[in-house]
């Protein structure tokens, strides 16, 4: 803001008397110091009386808050859901195409690598003749998809902490987005019991278990979390139950309140420390020990 704005209130910046314009200056304006705006508004002829000033102020602040809240929310969980699905699609297609490229490239380039890595290398080569041209072109599509997946991941990492601050902080942004995606949105995730969140992504195993085949799954996508994967197998059930419990609370806070609660994370860290201490105690532990919250 320029210095000349220092002495100007929100009501003096609007391009017109239109309430939408006034709301915009409430949202976007700044000033270093507050002043006696109600008196200045009368003095400068914006309104006839202070009571009228407060009516206009209410109109403008209400409209501004409503618009700003709606805009910030639009940016939120639905966008994450699409982004994480798109990232998975990009990675899956890149891998599929890379297999095709590897098979084909093997007939032309004896030193051709495999997988997405191999394609990144092939994409840089100068093709000799129309056949190589096709293979190198196909490899460069894989490289593009791989780059797109990276960019989607970066997007998720920047947006998840805004959409779901507690969940993103505790689960990590990508796992947070995956849970939101599997549940179909932050609101539906917030309404699920912790036992459901625990096995989100393990539906096949869960339904096999319900049909009477096999044991119940201990974890779904939360397996990717260090607190599950880094815990010894016999304690993973406890770890994933504890993690799912706290992530469920985090999702509910994010949906219904929206503020950061670092104490929740501290409680989870403490709980996992206790579970992992079983290994050092030489305790047989196992998954049955039921004192998890």
């Amino acid at each position: 803001m320029t210095e000349s704005d220092g002495g100007r209130g929100w009501f003096e910046r609007a391009g017109s008397a239109d309430p939408a314009d006034a709301a915009e200056t409430v949202t976007a304006g700044t000033a270093e110091e507050p002043r006696d705006w109600p008196a200045l508004a009368v003095e400068r002829g914006y309104v006839d009386a202070e009571s009228e000033y407060y009516d206009r102020l209410r109109e403008a602040t209400t409209a501004a808050a409503r618009a700003a809240a709606a805009e910030r929310e639009r940016a939120d969980d639905r966008q994450l859901l699409h982004a994480v699905r798109a990232m998975d699609d990009a990675e899956r297609v890149a891998n599929e195409l890379a297999e095709r490229v590897a098979e084909w490239a093997g007939t032309l380039f004896p030193d051709a690598g495999t997988g997405v890595e191999g394609c990144l290398d092939l994409a840089e080569r100068d093709p000799d003749g129309p056949v190589e041209e096709r293979v190198v072109s196909l490899a460069s599509r894989v490289a593009d998809l791989d780059r797109e997946a990276d960019e989607l991941r970066a997007f998720i990492e920047s947006r998840a902490p805004v959409a779901a601050p507690n969940l993103a902080s505790m689960a990590g942004p990508v796992l947070a987005a995956r849970l939101i995606s599997l549940a179909g949105g932050l609101e539906t995730l917030a309404k699920k019991p912790s036992g459901t969140l625990q096995v989100l992504g393990a539906e096949d195993a869960l339904f096999a278990h319900l049909r009477g085949h096999g044991s119940s799954p201990k974890h779904g996508v939360i397996y990717t979390h260090e607190y599950v994967r880094g815990t010894r197998p016999e304690d993973r059930g406890s770890a994933s139950r504890a993690l799912a419990g706290k992530l469920t609370i985090a999702a509910r806070i994010d949906h219904y309140a929206g503020d950061r609660r670092p104490e929740l994370e501290a409680e989870l860290n403490e709980r996992i420390r206790t579970i992992r201490a079983r290994a050092e105690d030489g305790d047989a532990g196992g998954d049955g020990g039921g004192s998890d919250e």
């Binding site: 704005d5 929100w10 409430v26 304006g29 700044t30 000033a31 110091e33 507050p34 002043r35 705006w37």
Partner: peptide, 9 residues
């Protein structure tokens, strides 16, 4: 500074 142009002194 993002609301001093709205909130009175």
């Amino acid at each position: 500074e993002t609301y001093a142009h709205v909130v009175e002194a």
